[in-house]
Simulated scan of single mutants.
Amino acid sequence: MPAPGPGQVRVKLEGCGVCGSNLPVWEGRPWFDYPLPAGAPGHEGWGRVEAVGGGVEHPSVGTRVAVLSHHAYAEYDLVDACAAIPLPAILDGQPFPGEPLACAMNVFQRSGIKPGTTVAVVGIGFLGALLVSLAVKAGARVIALSRRRYALDVARRLGAMETPSSDDVRGAVKRVKALTNDVGCDCVLEVAGEQSTLDLATELTRIRGRLVIAGYHQDGPRTVNMQLWNWRGLDVINAHERDPQQYVDGLRAAIAAAATGRIDPAPLYTHRFALEELPRAFELMRSRPKGFLKALVLP
């Protein structure tokens, strides 16, 4: 059992979310180096501080925290103290995969969604569902698009006014145009990280609208319809943060949102696995059967 170094805390993990960005690692794509360090690439962990290193005053031993790390598929993790953010008592007993919740808050902040705007969310997984909920509660008219019926059912329960299937691209574009008087959407969030969803999101964004890239396009280059981007004068936002402080700020915002009821991620955690069942969690995430949205692994 490693002792925490200066500025570190050791966290006894209660669980870790399983992220879609981990699938290529599990599949063995050639751009990764193996073997990975123990606990990698789990980055959605939470737990309780068990020991602190030199110079650490907060968080103290016994504090329940969400952590920003990359080794949380484990029973314990060593984390910089500044990346272990305390969870309030109102969230006791609730899973809290902080990184994707922080990501949702950061994407939403970058999107500039205001009351009365028409917003399309293309790709309804865990992140897409959170963004639907945030946009609805901000007073936007939300259109949710996905290939999966179950995901569209989730979006409707969260308040989406329309839920076209993205399987029929032409039909989806036609439906959105009809809903917006042939104008398109003020803001479109692309959340799936695929060429097809990027193309569809472009088509749905109105002249001088905002196209927000929230999907993780990690498997190679993409092509864009630059003619359409130019003609419509789109504002294109890459909503992936790389500033560590912004991650922390987003996590604090997510904790506050969950504590006040602005977000309620609990219904979106659809499957739970023991740590040794992690391969089953990955396989389920790859196949995405009916009823699947987000898996958690619990040591």
Rank of each mutant, 00 (worst) to 15 (best):
270 T>E: 09
181 N>T: 14
21 S>Q: 02
171 G>P: 05
222 R>P: 11
133 S>L: 03
25 V>Q: 01
12 K>L: 07
83 A>D: 15
161 M>A: 14
93 G>R: 13
118 T>C: 06
35 P>K: 04
96 F>Q: 08
128 G>K: 01
80 D>C: 02
105 M>F: 04
257 A>R: 13
119 V>W: 07
185 C>K: 05
224 V>D: 01
164 P>I: 05
157 R>A: 13
237 I>A: 10
274 A>I: 12
284 L>Q: 13
88 P>E: 00
62 G>W: 14
291 G>F: 02
75 E>M: 03
98 G>M: 05
264 D>W: 04
269 Y>C: 10
260 T>I: 13
257 A>F: 05
149 R>E: 15
127 L>W: 08
34 Y>W: 11
269 Y>F: 15
54 G>F: 00
281 A>N: 05
169 V>G: 02
63 T>Q: 07
26 W>P: 00
104 A>C: 12
264 D>T: 13
200 L>E: 11
208 R>E: 09
110 R>M: 12
141 R>V: 11
239 A>K: 05
107 V>T: 11
84 A>V: 14
97 P>E: 12
67 V>I: 14
210 R>N: 14
274 A>R: 15
177 K>R: 15
233 G>L: 07
174 K>V: 08
109 Q>D: 15
104 A>W: 04
195 Q>F: 00
204 L>Q: 12
240 H>A: 04
45 G>L: 08
12 K>Q: 14
262 R>L: 11
156 R>W: 01
144 A>L: 01
187 C>Y: 04
50 E>N: 06
267 P>F: 10
33 D>R: 07
88 P>N: 06
136 V>L: 05
48 R>C: 11
258 A>W: 00
29 R>V: 10
275 L>S: 00
234 L>K: 06
30 P>M: 03
89 A>P: 09
51 A>D: 15
14 E>D: 15
251 L>K: 02
71 H>L: 12
77 D>Q: 15
121 V>I: 13
206 R>H: 07
67 V>G: 05
134 L>S: 02
292 F>V: 05
190 E>P: 04
133 S>F: 01
21 S>H: 01
232 R>K: 07
108 F>V: 13
54 G>V: 01
80 D>L: 07
211 L>M: 01
227 Q>R: 14
72 A>M: 07
169 V>R: 15
261 G>W: 07
28 G>R: 09
63 T>N: 10
250 G>E: 12
17 G>L: 00
104 A>M: 02
131 L>P: 11
137 K>Y: 06
175 R>H: 11
125 G>C: 04
154 V>C: 01
167 D>A: 02
117 T>G: 09
179 L>N: 09
223 T>W: 02
71 H>M: 08
139 G>D: 05
